[in-house]
Every structure is written in structure tokens, then in C-alpha cells.
Write a protein that binds this DNA or RNA. Structure first.
Lengths: 265, 265
DNA sequence: ATTGACCCTCCCCTTACAGGAAGCATTATA
DNA sequence: TATAATGCTTCCTGTAAGGGGAGGGTCAAT
């Protein structure tokens, strides 16, 4: 039997950590002296501690580790968790790598004494009179993370009901605030002919800017448009919408072309 | 003037986020109506919001971003912070990559139906009678993170006082628990001759195991040794110590050779 | 005048502990 | 044996960056 201090020294886990693991039920001492609440550990628990440390080094959460330990006999579980973690780490690495790439571009800009927000001045705003369309649309509360998925239903309908799209798909944003988990969006596809399921989409005069790049830059475009509206004494007349000019499935993230329209008056 | 909802929609920051940024002083609304506490933002603050989002995407903490914004005129600061962050990201990537490599090895083990803790059984324990040395030593409370640095002083003394080391440097662990920030360690170098500054180091009979690999595996060795002591009815006779057989500065992390000794009775 | 959308503050929750206080228990030393 | 030094306990607070929700006030349009 080892006291918590001895156990700490051998396992290289602090007292705080051991007490915390006890509390969350990850590693409970083999024996607790009822009269003074002293914790005592088995020597064999040292190996459990090693295992925990090992899994922790792979960035599993303590909750995940608990599950793995509880099903230690089930090697399939561990195997699949490990493979999931591998996938996870790989994604992290690509994420960090692309971040690093962007960062380096900005550093170069800074070294050339340019403003890193300078790209904002490159955004060009046009005033256009948008065509009137008959659109097939669906309005939903959606999670912005799986925005794309929601188009599938529409695409499918068009395919199976032999409808003919006449322009690129678009999305109309009705939300009054930014709520990524529960975003009020109407996705739509303009059709060549009106049916009883279509409705008329007639935004009229619009301020428009084109985004070439990642969706992450959408706030920049929106900001630009709003600043422009304010400077030119226009008001937003109805919900902003976006037209997707490129296929997000086959286009690399940074080459997407999205037109953002603000109906104005 | 924009209400918080409008500002949220354009900037793609949630209401929660905006209120939080107000609270921590990162982005305070330009105007607050005193009678109802409504927050109102300037259009120009949208660009600040964009900047914040940008820096956040580079994984700066909000605290860092606050500092950067406060010194926005000082382009040097931003530049240096960006370069530090670049370094940081690079390290993260190497860290994740090496983790991924280890993970893949374990996955392969699992696929071959081996236990991932199997390496524990490979650790060989010998009983040896340790030589007696005259050691030049220093006992300190240290942070385990800069363990190596503490040797420099000793090395320097040996060099400038023309002393002759006779064996590899070692460290004796007096701590009674694991406290990474404040670890009670005695670092020592055995010398050929006794002086008035040396003391006798005579651990006697020891159980010994050799670690080839990263320092992270030290708990495994300690665990192994403790299990062995318990199984063979020995007791720890004095503080455990480690002998560093390889130069940590020139040896890649995974090739270090460290001998761990437990004086026994 | 009412209603529904919008805004406010306040409190609790998240991870994986660290830091510290206050108070027993055990062990070492004088 | 008395005292001091450790060792152990529980409990409280704090971390980063907000999310979730309660309870209640306010605004704009009908």
C-alpha cells in the first residue's frame, strides 16, 4: 500500500491530480482509511496510472480515458478510439499548417510595411439591379457548420422532378443576430419556370461585392457593404443574400466565388 | 449606430461574445444608453471586430489581442508578436507530428494484437553494488522544466577549478511527492579526488534499470522498480538517483540513456 | 394598447487541474 | 514526552472564452 505522496512520486502525478482523478472516478485509491480519509493505493495501480498518462499524452480527454479504461478488455474500442485520434491529429496538423501559411503571408506584408487589413480596400462594391427569379426555396434554422448539407434536399428535388435551374443557388439570411448553431437561412434555387411551389424573388436594387476565398472572410464583405451603405446613405431594404458561383465540393476552399448582395433603398 | 444584434449579424460574433468583449474591455461599444444600458456600436468598430477575429484566428489570446490593439500604432510590436506566434505554431506542428508518429506505432501494435503497455515487460532490472564516489553536489528546489540548466553551474565549476570528473553526472531525488514546479533534487558529479567541497556518495546495493528513450518514460521505470521491490521484498534504503549516460544537448530526445538506481535493503 | 422581437443582468457550467487556507494525523527530533 | 515538522484531509477560488438559460425591462410596429 502506498500513500498518496509515495504514489505521486513514482507516477509523476501531483497530489492535486491524484485527488482530482479520485474525485472524477478515473483512478480511485484501492483503500481509503475510514477514520482519517487517507488514500492508499495498490502497487498495481501504478500501471493504471502509467496507462492514463500514456493516453493523456495522446490528448484523450479524461472522460474518454475513463471510457477506455472501463472497457479495457474490449480491444476494438481502444483501437477505434486510437484511429479516430490519429485522424483528429492529422486534421490538427493540416489546420495548423494552413494557419501557418496565412500567418507567413501576413508577416511578409508587415515586413513590407503594409497593413494586414489592407485587403479590405481591395473589395469592390457595385450597384446592380438584380433580376427577378422564380425560386424554389426552403427556410430553416440551421447550424452554419453543416450549411452545405441543407442544399442536398433541394438539389435532389430538382433532379427528380425534372426542374430546370436557371441560375446559381443562393441563400437568404433572415437572422437578426449571428447564432452559428441556429441560423435562420432560406436556401433557394432559381428555376426557369414558375410552379405552384416556387415563389417570386425580386430583391431590386442591390449593393454587391464578390468574395473570392474562404467563407471565413464573409464578415469582411458584410462589413465592407455596411460601411458603404452608411457612407452612401442607403438603407437595407430586405434580407441580404449570397449567390454561390462555384461548386463548394470541387473547389478548394480558398478559390470559392461568392457574391454577397444587399438589397438597398 | 448599430444595435448589438445588428453588429453581431455583420461581424459574425455572437451576442455572448460581444458582451464578453465589452466586459473584458477588448471591444467596448461606442455608446451605452445610460437609461437602459443598451449597447450601440459605431460602423467603424466593425473593422476593429474584423481585426480581432483575424488575430483570434491566429490563436492569439484575447489578452494578447488587447495589448496589440492598445499599441496598434506600434507596428514593431505586432510584427514581433506575429513572428513569435509563427515560431509557436511551428513548434505545435512538430509536437503534433511526433505525437502522431508515436500514436501510429501504438496503433500498429494494437493491430498486431499486442498490448500497448507491453514495453513495460521489456524493462530489465539488475541488482548491482554501486561504487562509492566523491561527489561535488548541489541540492536545490527546482522546476523540472529547466532541470538541465542547473547542471551548468556545476559544469562550470569543474572547468574553472580544474577538477576531474570520474563518472557521468547524476541526480538524487529527495522530494517526497511529485511537484514539477518545486522539485527537491540534488545534482552531482563524481570527482577523481576528494576535496573539502566534495562529499562521499555511497548508495550501496541498488536495483537498477536503464531507460533508453525520452524522459517522459521515467515514470515507467520508477513504476517497474517499485513493483520489483515489492515483489522481491526489498525496501528503499535511501533516495533514488539517476545517472545520465548521454549528453542531452547532442542526443536526440528518444536516444537518451538514463540509468535509474534504487538503493535497497 | 398590445405584442413580439430585442435587450439587459445575473448565475451556473465547461477542462484539468493549481494555489492556498484551515484543520487533523503521523512521525521525527530534542 | 513535548514539540515541531511533515503529511494528509476538505473546501474555496481561479483559470479561457464564452454557452445556456432565467427573469425581467424596452422598443417598434400594428
Amino acid at each position: 500500500m502506498l500513500t498518496i505522496g509515495e504514489f505521486s512520486k513514482i507516477s509523476h502525478l501531483t497530489l492535486k491530480t491524484l485527488r482530482y482523478y479520485d474525485e472524477i472516478g478515473l483512478l480511485k485509491p484501492a483503500f481509503i482509511d475510514a477514520k482519517n480519509n487517507y488514500r492508499y493505493y495498490n502497487i498495481s495501480q501504478l500501471e493504471t496510472a502509467l496507462l492514463i498518462a500514456r493516453l493523456k499524452s495522446y490528448l484523450f480527454s479524461l472522460e474518454e480515458i475513463k471510457v477506455i479504461l472501463a472497457n479495457w478488455e474490449n480491444t476494438e474500442l481502444l483501437n477505434s478510439k486510437m484511429k479516430a485520434k490519429q485522424e483528429n491529429l492529422t486534421q490538427q496538423i493540416t489546420f495548423y499548417s494552413s494557419l501557418l501559411k496565412k500567418l507567413k503571408i501576413d508577416i511578409q506584408l508587415l515586413d513590407e510595411e503594409e497593413n494586414i487589413m489592407g485587403y479590405l480596400d481591395q473589395i469592390e462594391i457595385k450597384v446592380v439591379d438584380h433580376l427577378t427569379y422564380h425560386i424554389l426555396s426552403q427556410r430553416k434554422q440551421m447550424n452554419t457548420a453543416d450549411f452545405l448539407l441543407h442544399f442536398n434536399e433541394l438539389f435532389s428535388k430538382i433532379l427528380f422532378e425534372n426542374l430546370s435551374p436557371i441560375a446559381k443557388p443562393l441563400a437568404i439570411f433572415h437572422s437578426s443576430e449571428y447564432e452559428p448553431e441556429n441560423y435562420d437561412v432560406e436556401i433557394a434555387i432559381p428555376l426557369a419556370m414558375a410552379t405552384n411551389k416556387t415563389k417570386v424573388f425580386n430583391p431590386g436594387l442591390c449593393a454587391m461585392a464578390t468574395l473570392i476565398g474562404s467563407y471565413d472572410d464573409l464578415p469582411s464583405i458584410h462589413t465592407k457593404l455596411h460601411v458603404w451603405l452608411a457612407e452612401n446613405n442607403y438603407k437595407l431594404n430586405s434580407a441580404p443574400f449570397e449567390v454561390y458561383q462555384t461548386d463548394p465540393y470541387s473547389t478548394p476552399e480558398e478559390n470559392n466565388i461568392i457574391e454577397v448582395y444587399f438589397p438597398i433603398k
